[in-house]
């Protein structure tokens, strides 16, 4: 289920005095099974962009192609598009509304007209995928912890069996353990073959998980490439109000002081190995 975006522009309140162009002439293609991190400062157009990918917003100009078909052309069912491309909004706990966790997760597949038996199966499978305890199914979603409600919301989308999963800041407001658990879930989901687009402000998480990074700045796609390449552009990222991962900044500063270390490390482990190697090369005391 490849998604292709061509010359996509979106202007809110077009033709009025408060007209604002939120995204401008965006082009990219997402292939099956990719794991993409979408980053950009607040107001850079991330939310506007992702709402185009499943037809929640209509382009002011340009096209969104899913499986090669323009989703706004005649005869295309947007309902089917939304079933294939699932979108989990920010703070999904503000969107749970059913009396029980089961009903909340079952809402999507029920609406799509699946039989009761199929719905049950899909709820079951979705719970499994996000590691949600079945005992919680009969509880009210309002009794759950922050991390659990997030998982209910993600399960609700997974229950409609999307091929692409888009998550807008899925870990915002969670404690470190809750954050790790959700990210592990997402990683596992990706391994089952789903394409994932993760919108996040947490550069450490994005650097660790995503293979490809897309960077938005003031409505324009200003970088799109492998995580390693994008994050090695520390100064550029800072210039658009983003902060590269701390370990990347550290390597950059060591290079400024004459160290021959790579500036494209993404994790603590990589940084550690790289520093040890350089210390050995320098024959520094204390280095093994």
């Amino acid at each position: 289920m490849p998604i292709e975006v061509r010359n996509l522009t979106h202007t809110y309140m077009q033709g009025t005095i408060s007209e604002v162009t939120a995204i401008f002439d965006i082009n990219f293609r997402i292939d099956d099974g990719e794991f993409i991190g979408l980053i950009g400062a607040t107001g850079s157009g991330k939310s506007t962009l992702i709402q185009h990918l499943n037809g929640l917003l209509k382009p002011s100009s340009g096209t969104v192609l899913v499986d090669g078909v323009d989703i706004w052309s005649k005869g295309v069912s947007l309902k089917k598009v939304r079933q294939k491309i699932g979108l989990v909004f920010q703070y999904p706990e503000q969107q749970v509304f059913e009396e029980t966790v089961y009903d909340d997760i079952a809402f999507g597949p029920k609406n799509l007209g699946y039989s009761q038996k199929e719905v049950e199966g899909q709820v079951e499978e979705a719970c499994e995928l996000v590691g949600l305890d079945r005992e919680l199914l009969s509880r009210s979603p309002f009794e759950l912890s922050g991390g659990q409600v997030r998982r209910v919301a993600i399960a609700g989308i997974l229950a409609i069996k999307p091929k692409v999963l888009i998550l807008d800041e899925p870990t915002a407001g969670l404690d470190p353990r809750g954050r790790r658990e959700i990210l592990d879930n997402i990683k596992n989901l990706h391994e089952t073959g789903i394409s994932v687009i993760l919108v996040s402000h947490n550069m450490d998480d994005v650097a660790r998980l995503c293979e490809r990074i897309m960077v938005l700045d003031k409505g324009k796609l200003v970088a799109d490439g492998p995580a390693r390449e994008v994050f090695s552009q520390g100064r550029f990222l800072e210039s658009i109000d983003l902060k590269p991962p701390d370990v990347t900044v550290l390597m950059e500063k060591l290079r400024d002081r004459g160290w021959a270390v790579r500036n494209d490390v993404l994790t603590v482990e990589e940084a550690c190995a790289e520093i040890v190697k350089e210390l050995q090369r320098r024959g520094v005391a204390g280095a093994i």
């Binding site: 040890v276 520094v284 005391a285 204390g286 280095a287």
Partner: peptide, 27 residues
């Protein structure tokens, strides 16, 4: 843990850069 002789309590980028740059070559 890898045997480098620096303060394990360095928490900021600048602290760690300073720690590393103070290491003297011994051999």
């Amino acid at each position: 843990l890898a045997g480098i002789n620096i303060d394990p309590g360095a928490l900021t980028v600048d602290e760690l850069v300073d720690e590393l740059c103070q290491l003297k070559s011994g051999i």
